[in-house]
C-alpha cells in the first residue's frame, strides 16, 4: 500500500511539474487554450487511473491511445484514398500513354524506309468502365527517308497553286508517297502490339 501511494504521489508530482514547464514553454497564441485543455485531461487521467488500477478496473492508457489513433489513421487513409485514387489513376494513365507512345515510336523507326516518327494515341480514360486503358485510336506521323541520303537535296521551289480544285491532287500525291508495303507492315505491327483494329490506325506523312 505504501509503495502504491509513493508511486502515485511521485507520478502526480512529476506530471504536474512537467505540465507546469510545458505551460511556460508553449507560445502564447491561440493554440495555448487547446494545449491547456489536453494537459488538463492528461492530469485527470494521471490522477484517477492508478486508483482505479488498485481497485481493478483501470485501463491501459497506452493501448487505448494506440487503438484510438489507429482508428483515426485508418479513417484518414480511407478518406484520402477516395481522392487519391482518381489522381493516381490519372498519373498511371499518363505513364501508360507515354510508354505506349515510346513503344510505337521505336517500332515505327525500326521499319526500313522511315526516318522519324511521331505518335499519339487515344485511350479509354474512364476508370469506372471495364475497358479502362484500352487503346481506341492510334495516330502515326511519319517522315520518310530520302532515297539518296548521302547527297544534300536541293530544295525545289514549290509551285504556287491558286486553283482549289487541284489541291486534292497534291494531297493524293503525298499519300501515294507512303509505300503500301510499309503501311501494311506498320499497321500489322501496331495492331498486334496494341490489339487494335487496323481501321483505328491512322498513318499520315509529315510535311517537311
Amino acid at each position: 500500500m505504501i509503495d502504491f501511494l509513493k508511486n502515485w504521489v511521485l507520478n502526480v508530482v512529476t506530471l504536474v511539474v512537467f505540465i507546469m514547464l510545458i505551460e511556460m514553454l508553449i507560445p502564447s497564441g491561440k493554440t495555448k487554450k487547446i494545449v491547456n485543455l489536453v494537459t488538463g485531461f492528461i492530469l485527470v487521467i494521471g490522477l484517477i487511473n492508478p486508483l482505479l488500477k488498485l481497485v481493478g478496473s483501470g485501463i491501459a492508457l497506452g493501448e487505448f491511445q494506440m487503438a484510438g489513433s489507429n482508428y483515426i489513421d485508418k479513417k484518414e487513409v480511407m478518406i484520402n484514398s477516395e481522392v487519391l485514387e482518381e489522381k493516381q489513376i490519372r498519373q498511371i494513365t499518363n505513364v501508360y500513354r507515354e510508354k505506349i507512345i515510346a513503344q510505337l515510336k521505336s517500332i515505327t523507326q525500326n521499319i526500313e524506309g522511315i526516318k522519324d516518327a511521331k505518335a499519339d494515341i487515344i485511350i479509354n480514360e474512364d476508370y469506372t468502365s471495364e475497358r479502362f486503358g484500352e487503346v481506341k485510336k492510334v495516330y502515326l506521323y511519319l517522315s520518310l527517308e530520302d532515297e539518296d541520303e548521302g547527297i544534300k537535296r536541293v530544295l525545289s521551289v514549290k509551285k504556287v497553286e491558286i486553283d482549289l480544285g487541284q489541291s486534292e491532287d497534291i494531297e493524293q500525291q503525298h499519300e501515294k508517297q507512303l509505300d503500301e508495303k510499309i503501311r501494311f507492315e506498320l499497321e500489322d505491327k501496331v495492331a498486334r502490339l496494341l490489339n487494335v483494329q487496323k481501321e483505328d490506325i491512322v498513318i499520315s506523312l509529315e510535311e517537311d
Partner: peptide, 12 residues
Amino acid sequence: MAVPIITSLLDL
C-alpha cells in the same frame, strides 16, 4: 492527437 486521450478518459 488529443482525441485518443479524451476517449480514454471517457472509457475510464
